[in-house]
């Protein structure tokens, strides 16, 4: 079953085309990778799906309903949660309050305080934030802030999770931990995940399918193996930045 259907989506900023008629289907239960060089339009695509930006043309359907005219808070309550590439924690609040706020507003039905406490505990555990519940978010390390970003998204009770470079800037060990955590989270919550990542090996390990954007256009889609063999991708993506080749399996 198709959970998210993006149809001929375009976004033009001034004279610049950030997205050019991109169409994409995400199946229920898959982990779908999204890759492309800086400026390829990945984050713009996320912002439109999550409602932070309006598309110039094209549509987005989620679970059969059209969502591209909705506000971000409405989309969130429909079951889509996103994280931000540059993390946006509620810096002055504790980790617990960050997660609880997301739970109070993202969940469609109100939970009793007791259920909330239990759910917060389990989400913090899944994201490796156990001991940090009472820490103020601004005092966390980057790695912990990235995990808080995921925990907060989870607390809204999503069906589809949009992860924007949650592994950028992490050490190799932290990346391994994050991959394990994400797989666990996906199984526990029955999630579908769309993930933007520059860490290629991570993307290849996790994804069922990968979509490649280049300068606003979709240039390839397929299994990680397909993508690795695709000459167009090699030229457009790897040709741009040699350092990315290092991450290829």
């Amino acid at each position: 079953m198709t959970l998210l259907k993006v149809d001929k989506l375009s976004k033009i900023f001034g004279g610049l085309t950030a997205l050019d008629a991109v169409s994409l289907s995400i199946e229920d239960g898959e982990i779908h990778g999204l890759m492309g060089a800086n400026g390829a339009g990945k984050t713009t695509l996320f912002s439109i799906i999550a409602g932070n930006q309006r598309p110039s043309s094209g549509t987005v359907h989620f679970a059969g309903a059209r969502i591209d005219r909705l506000r971000p808070d409405q989309i969130c309550r429909k079951g889509i949660a996103r994280t931000f590439q540059i993390v946006r924690p509620f810096a002055g609040l504790t980790v617990r309050d960050n997660v609880e706020t997301a739970m109070l507003f993202g969940q469609t039905e109100a939970l009793s305080p007791r259920e909330r406490d239990r759910l917060i505990g389990s989400i913090l555990g899944e994201c490796g934030l156990d001991g940090l519940a009472d820490r103020v978010a601004s005092s966390l390390t980057l790695s912990a802030r990235k995990r808080l970003e995921v925990a907060r998204a989870l607390a809204t009770g999503p069906r589809l999770l949009l992860l924007d470079e949650v592994m950028a800037g992490l050490t190799p060990t932290e990346v391994t931990d994050m991959i394990a955590a994400l797989k666990r989270v996906k199984d526990n919550h029955g999630l579908t995940i769309l993930i933007i990542e520059h860490v290629m090996s991570a993307l290849n390990q996790m994804s069922d399918r990968i979509t490649v954007l280049h300068r606003g256009q979709l240039i390839a889609e397929g299994t990680p193996e397909d993508i690795a063999r695709n000459p167009q991708v090699a030229e457009a993506y790897f040709g741009v930045d040699d350092s990315e080749l290092e991450g290829r399996p």
Binding site: A50, G51, N52, R71, P72, D73, C76, R77, A81, R82, F84, R88, P89, F90, A91, G92, L93, T101, A102, F105, G106, Q107, R152, A153, T156
Partner: peptide
Amino acid sequence: REDETAAETLGVP
């Protein structure tokens, strides 16, 4: 107050 964009994205109207 803490972050309006994040609040909106997490479901705050």
